[in-house]
């Protein structure tokens, strides 16, 4: 079996062994969404207006929550350092891990956002735009938060430092996605912005794994 298949198979088996890993972020997302009308007002016009932005932010937080420990257990088990002996560049393996993570952990999160949209009375057109932006933007977000996770691997008291360190880098993604949502609400053309968002995501997904692998190598070099 090729290393690529082994990586994916292992990821699937880990999910089967720890299904809670998938559900906790969804749970978190739904909880945050339920807090919005409670904190604001159960006025459906008001909710519809801010709903898509709220869902975006909540999904972003949920994604950060489940990416924060992406490499932690493999690192402390010593499995991560064995990746160096596999016959592939580390950046490639990291990329695979991130793809697997996106497929099995982030995608389910995106797929439940329509429910959240219904709860906040978001209109159908905006809901489609929301799904599209999340779909296109999350690869970049996953890569960046993976970098945060890798950078803080070696530190025992990092807390949510990885998240704090990476959040400022999300600014362009959030702004572009918000632009798409505003245009979708107006009914104007969203395609150019989506293309820009997609380009950012592709570039990030290509380059960030290299930085992640450097960070992992660094942390392996620092542990005994």
């Amino acid at each position: 079996m090729s290393i690529e298949k082994r990586m994916l198979a292992r990821e699937l088996k880990l999910i089967a062994a720890r299904p809670g890993d998938i559900f906790k972020p969804m749970w978190f997302l739904m909880l945050v969404i339920s807090m919005v009308p409670l904190a604001l007002a159960p006025d459906s016009d008001l909710l519809a207006e801010i709903g898509s932005a709220m869902i975006w932010v909540a999904t972003l937080l949920a994604l950060l929550l489940n990416t924060e420990h992406l490499f932690q257990s493999d690192f402390s088990d010593g499995v991560l350092e064995q990746w160096l002996f596999l016959d592939r560049p580390l950046a490639w393996l990291v990329g695979l891990k991130l793809i697997a993570h996106w497929l099995f952990h982030v995608l389910p999160l995106i797929l439940i956002t329509p429910i959240a949209g219904l709860m906040l009375s978001v209109s159908t057109e905006v809901l489609f735009a929301l799904l599209a932006t999340l779909f296109v933007a999350t690869p970049a977000l996953t890569c960046f938060s993976g970098l945060g996770a890798a950078l803080t691997l070696g530190s025992s008291r990092s807390g949510i430092l990885g998240v704090l360190v990476m959040m400022p880098l999300f600014v362009p993604v959030v702004i572009l996605a918000a632009g798409v949502l505003i245009r979708a609400t107006d009914g104007s053309d969203t395609l150019p912005l989506m293309a820009l968002l997609g380009a950012f995501s592709v570039v990030a997904a290509t380059l960030v794994p290299i930085a992640v692998s450097a960070a992992i190598r660094l942390n392996i070099g620092g542990s005994n």
Binding site: L161, L164, A214
Partner: peptide
């Protein structure tokens, strides 16, 4: 916030060499 990240990351990692390199990666990405 980017500056704070660089300061916080360094403070969280004990070994100064390693902290420096981790910060370097972060700053370059930033």
């Amino acid at each position: 916030f980017l500056y704070l990240g660089a300061i916080g990351l360094r403070a969280a990692i004990q070994d100064p060499d390693q902290a420096g390199k981790a910060c370097g990666i972060l700053v370059l990405v930033g």
